[in-house]
Nucleic acid binder design. Structure first.
Lengths: 112, 112
DNA sequence: CTCCTATATCGATGACTGTCGATATAAGGG
DNA sequence: CCCTTATATCGACAGTCATCGATATAGGAG
């Protein structure tokens, strides 16, 4: 198991497609770990709901109801995971949803 | 956030289908938390790979390489989550995959 | 250069979890 | 009854994480 800040989503063997070995299970579990926090899910969906699926950090802090350092921490995790792209424009930083990045996870949950 | 032993998967609003509120995000995050452990994913896939998608606990301990109490703990979590059904037969306990239980999670990851 | 705003990093803290060994419970055999 | 086997529960421990306040960094405005 990687630490949460070091996970890059890159998978995956399907859960119901035959016995998984420990390594594949660990890779997939890491991916789910990124999604297993409400703040991160809310951030993903908030960014995705903006026009162009991108959003300035300054517009995310207040809707989340968490401190700015905490939001910054979660955005970093989502960026490292490959779910959000980071772009700096002047003083502001914009995060953008990377399209199709959840598809591999979705297919790992496919019925046998 | 529920504690891991109290989670029952029951969801879900799609992540990319508009801004989620805190409550929906928490429910979905809880569901992913159940899947964010390699031992649990391996258990799920091992049971699913058996004929009839069911399996005796005694046949799970050794392939997992974890102690019997630890395996028992994870099985309880999966059962409480609604992913595995528990049935006692004499001295043995069999766990069986509940069909279709991952579908709701899969659809929560659908592209917008 | 100085101030202000936006974002990231740091350090600390409280909570939760995965793991184990020891033990309890339950069921069957002699 | 006692013994053995299968499973669950208990208590403890080590590690990780979400969160915060304080602070650093960076960029623009005046």
């Amino acid at each position: 198991m990687k630490k949460i800040a070091e996970i890059t989503i890159d998978c995956c063997a399907p859960v119901l497609g035959g016995a998984m070995n420990r390594e594949d299970a660990t890779t997939l579990a890491d991916a789910f770990k990124v999604l297993s926090d409400p703040a991160r899910l809310q951030l993903l969906s908030l960014v995705a709901a903006q026009p162009g699926a991108e959003c300035c950090v300054c517009d995310l802090v207040s809707p989340l109801g968490l401190s700015q350092p905490t939001v910054s921490h979660h955005l970093k995790v989502l960026n490292q995971a490959g779910l959000l792209e980071r772009e700096k424009r002047g003083t502001w930083v914009f995060y953008k949803v990377v399209p199709g990045r959840l598809d591999a996870l979705r297919s790992a949950l496919q019925p046998a």
